[in-house]
């Protein structure tokens, strides 16, 4: 039995400690916003925040997250997260949408640590999140827009 703190609520999970956090959150807790894309921390679709830092939940064992604050897209309501989501809407970033919660979480993690990133820092930090629709042009603009709104 593991106790996870997700979006401020405690969840008791009966699962082996090596189970990836992604599948526990999706299939056992039932929060579906965090997506599976590769399973090997290559694409970023499963990005969520742990103690405010972006992490790839597909390779993170449950045991490593006990006692930490997990934030998924469903619980993203802090000032930075709100600014990121607003910027995403203003620029109409999503196409198919499947990778976008991971993109939004990565952008929130980036701006939480670095409120005024350079364009190169935005491009490099967001390079961890693959979008096959290639919304990258707007992703980068939206991170800039959110940073400006927060400044």
């Amino acid at each position: 039995m593991q106790i996870l703190t997700i979006n401020g609520a405690e969840h008791r999970i009966d699962a082996p400690p090596e189970m990836p956090l992604l599948w526990a959150i999706r299939d056992l807790v039932g929060l579906k916003g965090t997506k599976y894309g590769c399973g090997i921390a290559q694409c970023g679709a499963c990005t969520l925040l742990i103690n405010g830092l972006p992490q790839r939940s597909c390779v993170l064992p449950l045991s490593a997250t006990v006692g930490r604050a997990i934030t998924t897209i469903e619980g993203l309501d802090d000032r930075v997260g709100q600014a990121v989501k607003s910027a995403w809407a203003e620029l109409a970033v999503p196409q198919c949408g499947y990778c976008q919660s991971g993109q939004v979480m990565a952008a929130t993690g980036l701006l939480s640590r670095n409120p005024s990133p350079t364009d190169a820092e935005i491009a490099d930090q967001m390079a961890g999140n693959i979008c096959r629709c290639c919304t990258y042009h707007r992703v980068k603009q939206a991170v800039r827009r959110a940073a400006d709104a927060l400044a």
């Binding site: 579906k32 916003g33 965090t34 998924t72 897209i73 469903e74 993203l76 989501k85 995403w88 809407a89 109409a92 970033v93 999503p94 198919c96 949408g97 976008q100 919660s101 939004v104």
Partner: peptide
């Protein structure tokens, strides 16, 4: 489909 694809 804009907002559902932003808020998960």
């Amino acid at each position: 489909d804009l907002w559902p694809k932003i808020d998960g």
